[in-house]
Design a protein around this nucleic acid. Structure first.
Lengths: 241, 241
DNA sequence: CTGCGTCTGTACGCCAGCGTACAGAAGGCC
DNA sequence: GGCCTTCTGTACGCTGGCGTACAGACGCAG
């Protein structure tokens, strides 16, 4: 971005002027390079991150090394929910899946703002609920849907968090996120390419036919999208008790 | 229970005296018969439920009727998280999986207490985080583990929420919760019975060898258990900012 | 322009769980 | 006792995704 602005993050954007004035001076713009780990399972969180153009995956890693993504966070949300939820740590790993930037706030500063019980609290809680929806839907999706469908869902979730129709990610990476074999992704992506829905060139995916992608996806994408839009409307709504 | 007491629910138990005095008069003890639906996907919630000896499953139902449990709630928690999270509704169904009782509170009363930003808020948020852990782990489990392992996990989660070693539930019901075929559960349960771990008689499961059950389960049970115990210690801990 | 590392394509046997179908067994009701 | 419903056991073919193995393709460094 030529002139980074905290308001590129939807949560920060939605804050009332007074809260923005209080918080923005303490925000620090940090680069988010690919594969950067924001926290490991069980780490005490020091900061909360508000992505602008980066995408972060939350994933669980098992003892045998198998992994699975449970949610993806972009400029609609924040990383470090367990800070204000009170747990301080969480058994997941947060890893940058698409490079970019984020605004960072110290945990202490965030908690202080949260405990003023103002709009920030309500925004963060609503965002957390949308995160819950995404995780729950991921659980169901993992149970019932085919790899082909899940790949479509995953591409759409990423696409929504970028301003471009190009994704920079290898099949290996996608496989890790979905918790499947790399060969499976090759297979599924090959079909999509043959159908003219995407173009795939060595770590760069271009989406050619988004409507078709939505058709091929399972319903999980739509459910999550609808719920996210409902919970996080992009304008300033005062809290109603 | 011979003399029901709100303190059988761990959240209510953990409240300071002042908050208990304020809330308990408004609690209503309600029966929770098997298969009772507390809310359907998208329903506006009117009450929050604090189970004492009942168990409630949160499950997602897809368009084609397929379903999957995303979390289970007993006397350690509450049903109706989306009320104080701000969403008012949630795309899941809450259904009683093991009959018993619960204390009920109107949504308005709960929100009023929540917005006092006292111990109730912190307890509910910490509980919500443990719920998040459970959902995330379910997602991973659905991806990577065998039906046999998942059955063990599920039995343990239920067992922890009951005071008995007997579970009243048909294989059909379990299959619905796990999102698998009934025959699959028959198969897996048959193996457990042959191994002397459980005894199965027409809708009644008796756990004979719990340690063995834990060994046969995937790590998911232990992860969720540890995290739940960490987040919700059974004593009154003042909030530290 | 050559070589090497990374990324992608393909192949083959294997198996868990699915869909389907049906049979026996236990318990309740009249 | 006899009937009917519910619950459980078993069988069989099918398929999606896994594990493994290897070959081509692209791109960067030297």
């Amino acid at each position: 971005m030529s002139s980074p602005d905290p308001r590129e993050n939807h949560i920060l954007e939605a804050l009332p002027d007074a809260e923005q004035a209080r918080l923005f001076p303490h925000l620090k713009l940090v680069p988010m390079p690919l594969a950067m780990v924001l926290y490991e399972s069980g780490d005490a969180l020091r900061h909360v991150y508000f992505p602008t153009d980066s995408i972060v995956s939350l994933l669980y890693v098992m003892k045998d090394g198998a992994s699975a993504e449970i949610a993806v966070v972009g400029n609609e949300g924040a990383i470090g929910v367990s800070l204000f939820m009170g747990g301080e740590t969480t058994p997941s790993r947060a890893i940058v899946q698409s490079a970019g930037s984020a605004y960072r706030l110290t945990g202490a500063r965030l908690k202080a703002e949260f405990n003023r019980h103002g709009e920030m609290l309500h925004l963060l809680l609503r965002y957390t609920q949308s995160l819950i929806t995404q995780m729950a839907q991921t659980a169901v999706c993992n149970r019932h849907h085919s790899l082909d469908q899940q790949l479509c869902r995953w591409l759409l979730l990423s696409l929504d968090r970028l301003s471009s129709d190009k994704l920079n990610m290898t099949q290996e990476l996608i496989a890790n996120m979905l918790g499947v074999r790399r060969e499976g992704v090759t297979q599924a992506a090959g079909e999509l390419q043959a159908a003219g829905v995407i173009r795939y060139v060595r770590g760069q995916i271009t989406v050619l036919d988004r409507p078709r992608l939505e058709e091929l996806s399972c319903e999980c994408y739509a459910v999550v999208k609808r719920e996210t839009d409902r919970l996080l409307p992009r304008n300033r709504i005062p809290y109603v008790a």
